[in-house]
């Protein structure tokens, strides 16, 4: 029973970071109807920015989160206005290939700057953990979960309460109607894409503390982003949170009881089953 609760806790802790991984991805998919295959690479960029700040200036990785967010936000804004904006209404093939090309390009840039070596950010408190009734809770992962939830909450608040947030939600419902009411759709899309990239950067910062990473770690995170979105439905903060937690728990139990080597295969099988039987996600709303 103890093992069961330990797995459950581990699953929830993993789920928090996965929710943040998926949130940005989900916003772009839900609002712009674009699957951004470069999202995983954006996350890795966030991780490497954090790594560099940690190595060069001994900055605490948790303090790097706003910096990674801002750097990636800027990159996302420029990418959207200069490239993605030209394919916003294009068919799936176009957007898939374009963002895949972008991810190749960025991954090579990462390789050139930071090489292909596996990196990790190890702080003085990396090994610290809490012990609650025999269940071990790593301090770093707990902090990561709290921060991920806080970022998700802030995003939700921003989308719900600000004028720009309302414009974004209006655009996601009906582009034409939003334009008629004076929303500058190109600007809204650029902000959404930038926000998504910024969230990826923040997720990357958090990942760098808990996991070792290399440029090729982008794909697993991208795939998990997919799965979480499909589980939770698109374009909403709550969906990403629920999807992230559910998936984190499923993944942890799968590697415990089926074998760690099969964890990804199990995850993909779960994804396929859900896609086939419930294509709009567990709590999803219908989208094209």
């Amino acid at each position: 029973m103890q093992l069961f609760f330990q797995d459950l806790v581990n699953g929830i802790l993993t789920g928090g970071i996965l929710a943040l991984v998926a949130l940005g991805f989900s916003l772009v998919w839900g609002i712009m109807n674009i699957i951004n295959l470069a999202h995983g690479t954006f996350i890795m960029l966030g991780a490497y920015v954090t790594y560099q700040l940690f190595v060069s200036f001994h900055l605490d990785p948790f303090l790097c989160i706003p910096i990674a967010f801002v750097v990636l936000f800027a990159l996302g804004y420029v990418t959207q206005l200069s490239i993605i904006n030209y394919v916003v209404r294009a068919p799936v093939l176009t957007t898939f290939l374009l963002t895949f090309g972008l991810s190749l390009l960025l991954e090579n840039v990462i390789l050139l700057i930071w090489t292909g070596d596996t990196r990790s950010v190890t702080t003085g408190y990396s090994g610290a953990h809490l012990d609650v009734g025999g269940i071990t809770i790593p301090l770093v992962k707990l902090l990561t979960l709290v921060i991920a939830l806080a970022i998700g909450g802030l995003t939700q608040l921003w989308l719900a309460r600000t004028k720009l947030g309302r414009a974004i939600r209006a655009t996601s419902m009906d582009v034409g109607a939003a334009q008629l009411t004076g929303v500058r759709v190109a600007h809204v899309y650029a902000i959404v894409f930038a926000l998504s990239a910024g969230l990826a950067g923040a997720a990357g910062s958090l990942i760098s503390v808990s996991y070792a990473f290399s440029p090729s770690s982008a794909t697993p995170f991208l795939i998990k982003g997919f799965i979480v979105c499909v589980l939770g439905g698109l374009g909403s903060v709550q969906g990403a949170l629920v999807g992230g937690l559910v998936y984190g728990i499923v993944e942890t139990f799968a590697s415990q009881y089926i074998g760690a080597g099969y964890a990804d295969a199990v995850a993909l099988a779960v994804l396929l089953v859900i896609l086939v039987f419930r294509p709009t996600g567990i709590m999803g709303r219908a989208t094209a």
Partner: peptide, 25 residues
């Protein structure tokens, strides 16, 4: 038979996961 019921993005993702899952298996 099951996967070709999906369309657009969902078909793309499903096929991508099939390839990744096959490699894993």
């Amino acid at each position: 038979i099951p996967v070709l019921r999906l369309q657009g993005h969902y078909f793309g993702i499903a096929t991508l996961s099939i390839a990744l899952a096959a490699q894993d298996l």
